Amino acid sequence: MKFILNRYKFFLLLSIILIIILIFNNNLGINVFNNAKSSFLQMLAVLPPIMLLLGLIDEWVSRESMMKYMGEDSSILGIILSIALAAFAAGPMYAAFPFTAVLINKGVKFSNIIIFMNSWCVIKISTLLFEISSLGYKFTLYRLLIDFVGVIAMGYLIDYIVNKMPKKKKSCKF
């Protein structure tokens, strides 16, 4: 029982807050509930196909080939594949996290994982098409060039910070 309470403590806390809001301001509470329900239903519509695709990728693509093309020795090919995988992806950002878990399990280089996640956010083709129609091709091209440089730089910077910098010794002072 304690495990269940600990695991779902944020959900339980937010449910209690929602009940309190419903008691004190019924209209606001109903709006909050409807928004939460809508987000939950949207997530349920997106996640099953993604999980199915991830299962297929996990079975069909071997760890050796992922390490060959996106692993420690992948260089520019790993960067290109990371950006391409994310650019052609569909779905919200929370859909990238299961993909990221598969990439980690397949031995993909950490900088390529960060590049993949950043690219998922800013270099999606579906978003680019909308942006071109709304803001123009010049703006989109300039933003895209800056994003390519930024995504790659951030991938290597985060990789350096996490893996290469000397670890500080942790001490607890009470």
Score class of each variant (00 low, 15 high):
residue 158 I to R: 06
residue 69 Y to G: 02
residue 107 G to C: 09
residue 7 R to C: 08
residue 166 P to W: 08
residue 82 S to A: 15
residue 33 F to R: 01
residue 54 L to I: 13
residue 149 V to Y: 00
residue 140 T to M: 12
residue 35 N to R: 09
residue 141 L to A: 15
residue 29 G to S: 02
residue 45 A to V: 01
residue 96 A to F: 07
residue 135 L to D: 04
residue 22 L to V: 09
residue 123 I to K: 01
residue 133 S to P: 00
residue 142 Y to F: 14
residue 156 Y to R: 04
residue 158 I to V: 15
residue 150 G to S: 06
residue 26 N to S: 06
residue 34 N to P: 04
residue 5 L to V: 12
residue 86 A to F: 05
residue 108 V to A: 10
residue 116 F to P: 04
residue 28 L to P: 00
residue 122 V to A: 08
residue 152 I to L: 07
residue 38 S to H: 10
residue 131 E to Q: 09
residue 21 I to N: 04
residue 36 A to P: 05
residue 87 A to W: 03
residue 9 K to G: 10
residue 91 G to E: 06
residue 14 L to P: 00
residue 107 G to F: 03
residue 39 S to F: 12
residue 47 L to W: 02
residue 169 K to D: 15
residue 140 T to G: 06
residue 58 D to I: 08
residue 156 Y to S: 09
residue 126 S to R: 03
residue 40 F to N: 08
residue 174 F to L: 15
residue 108 V to C: 07
residue 40 F to S: 13
residue 163 N to C: 13
residue 163 N to E: 14
residue 154 M to G: 05
residue 142 Y to Q: 11
residue 29 G to E: 02
residue 54 L to R: 02
residue 7 R to H: 10
residue 156 Y to K: 03
residue 32 V to T: 12
residue 82 S to Q: 07
residue 154 M to A: 14
residue 148 F to A: 02
residue 134 S to D: 13
residue 143 R to F: 09
residue 144 L to N: 07
residue 77 L to F: 05
residue 35 N to F: 11
residue 41 L to D: 08
residue 16 I to G: 08
residue 170 K to N: 14
residue 84 A to G: 10
residue 74 S to P: 06
residue 120 W to E: 08
residue 122 V to G: 06
residue 75 S to C: 01
residue 81 L to V: 10
residue 44 L to P: 09
residue 72 E to M: 14
residue 70 M to W: 02
residue 100 T to P: 01
residue 109 K to S: 11
residue 99 F to P: 02
residue 170 K to C: 10
residue 159 D to W: 04
residue 77 L to M: 11
residue 119 S to F: 07
residue 4 I to C: 07
residue 107 G to N: 08
residue 172 C to H: 12
residue 138 K to V: 13
residue 143 R to I: 08
residue 167 K to Q: 15
residue 147 D to P: 00
residue 113 I to Q: 03
residue 48 P to S: 10
residue 125 I to K: 10
residue 171 S to V: 15
residue 49 P to Y: 09
residue 111 S to Q: 11
residue 87 A to Y: 04
residue 169 K to C: 14
residue 6 N to L: 11
residue 91 G to P: 03
residue 107 G to Y: 05
residue 78 G to R: 03
residue 123 I to Y: 03
residue 101 A to D: 10
